[in-house]
């Protein structure tokens, strides 16, 4: 299988006042195309930071990230945005929907950004696929947690990204909704052939991935 993502000697430090906190230490990681990987570890171990680095939302202190044979660590913020816009979908524990946009508008936004001809029509198809036909014009505050996360997933996959990054996608949901979200996510990845990197505390969810990576004190164990 060909490699989609390579992380070489990645270090990430945060400066908090005079102190420097080392969040990730000398991370080396390869992710193959169509591979599903779960990242587990204790709180504060560096899981979310890893996801943010891969998504280009943070800059590594040192090391290289190579996405599809292109090094992205040296790129400008806008250049990384361009890659993310077309190739990476991100799902958060707290959903991060735009509160004043309806479900359709939240999903259509990514499509519009990528110059789709009928973004709202596409968005409705996606939402319908996730059982949200009756929620098209509802604002996020009018949706349940499970529904919000389904909208967030629909938004993340709307561009059929090669890589999906999910940070505790079921962390804010009950068991029933967690199962439903996990099923949707893994079904989609399988059908579309995307890669998935998923941070989770849930062992059952972690087991669904082909590979499990454990992070402890900023290092891959």
């Amino acid at each position: 299988m060909s490699v989609l993502l390579k992380l070489k000697k990645i270090n990430l430090k945060y400066q908090t006042g005079k102190d420097s906190i080392s969040v990730l230490k000398n991370i080396n990681l390869n992710i193959n195309k169509k591979e599903t990987v779960s990242v587990i570890g204790e709180s504060g171990s560096g899981k979310t930071s890893l996801i943010m680095l891969i998504g280009g939302l943070e800059k590594a202190t040192s090391g290289k990230i190579i996405y599809n044979n292109q090094e992205i660590t040296g790129l400008s913020e806008d250049e990384v945005s361009e890659i993310r816009k077309k190739n990476i979908g991100i799902i958060f524990q707290s959903f991060y929907l735009i509160p004043n946009y309806t479900a359709v508008e939240n999903v259509a936004l990514t499509l519009e950004l990528n110059n789709f001809k009928n973004p709202e029509k596409e968005a409705k198809i996606l939402l319908d696929r996730f059982g949200l036909k009756h929620r098209f014009n509802n604002l996020p505050s009018q949706l349940s947690g499970g529904e919000q996360q389904r909208v967030a997933i629909a938004r993340a996959i709307s561009m059929k990204p090669e890589l999906i990054l999910a940070d505790e996608p079921t962390g804010n949901l009950d068991t029933e909704n967690s199962i439903m979200i996990a099923n949707i996510l893994f079904k989609y990845v399988k059908e579309e052939g995307s890669s998935l990197i998923m941070v989770t505390h849930d062992p059952k969810l972690a087991d669904k991935a082909k590979r499990k990576i454990k992070i402890k004190d900023g290092k891959i164990k």
């Binding site: 939302l57 913020e77 806008d78 945005s81 816009k85 991100i90 936004l109």
Partner: peptide, 18 residues
């Protein structure tokens, strides 16, 4: 606050600063 949050989501989705 709303702008900050909204712009954050835009950034995550791939909007450029421009």
């Amino acid at each position: 606050k709303v702008k900050e949050y909204q712009n954050l989501v835009f950034k995550i989705l791939g909007f450029s600063k421009k």
